[in-house]
Write a protein that binds this DNA or RNA. Structure first.
Length: 152
DNA sequence: TAGGCCATCTGGTCCT
DNA sequence: AGGACCAGATGGCCTA
């Protein structure tokens, strides 16, 4: 699932998730990718322990994972929603340019620094080149800033 | 085809 | 006890 698809409404997503769960013989994961699917999962809940071991003649059963997996998918959905919200705050050229998660974090960090420099220096014209800041007791300058270069 | 990125599953740990 | 959070494993998709 791409980040952009996370823009679908929460209720729609939850409906899809729980539709999967209620279908014990249901299809695989929502995206069709990934490791063991829920349909497989329902088998795991009934099979013996890994290695085919039996416990004192009893078939030890692992608890069904559907509910736990659904919660985890929902949690991932929320994380991706947060990534999307953060991504929408970062100016890029073009504006709809696809960013990976690590790019979102790195660009957001540098954009915050850039905005901070803008506030400190009172100029929008390459503020990071003017702005000095204290780090570990040492006065530093931001050597290069993507957003300063963009506004050049 | 290799590498990057991602979703999903899973088991462990911590918290309420 | 149940849920939230996390990291590792796995496999699919896409691009250079």
């Amino acid at each position: 699932m791409a980040i952009s698809s996370a823009s679908s409404s929460l209720s729609n997503y939850l409906m899809a998730v729980f539709a999967q769960d209620s279908n014990s013989s249901g299809s695989a994961s929502a995206s069709g990718s990934g490791a063991a699917a829920d349909s497989e999962d329902s088998q795991i809940g009934q099979e013996a322990l890994p290695g085919g071991q039996e416990n004192q003649g009893h078939h030890r059963r692992r608890p069904p994972r559907q509910k736990i997996n659904a919660r985890e998918r929902y949690r991932t959905f929320n994380v991706n929603s947060a990534y999307e919200a953060l991504r929408n705050l970062i100016p890029t050229e073009p504006m709809n340019r696809k960013l990976s998660k690590i790019e979102i974090i790195r660009l957001a960090s540098s954009y915050i620094t850039h905005l901070s420099s803008t506030l400190e220096t009172g100029t929008e014209c390459q503020p990071c080149l003017l702005h000095k800041y204290e780090s570990e007791g040492i006065t530093r300058r931001i050597s290069i800033c993507t957003f300063c270069l963009k506004t050049k």
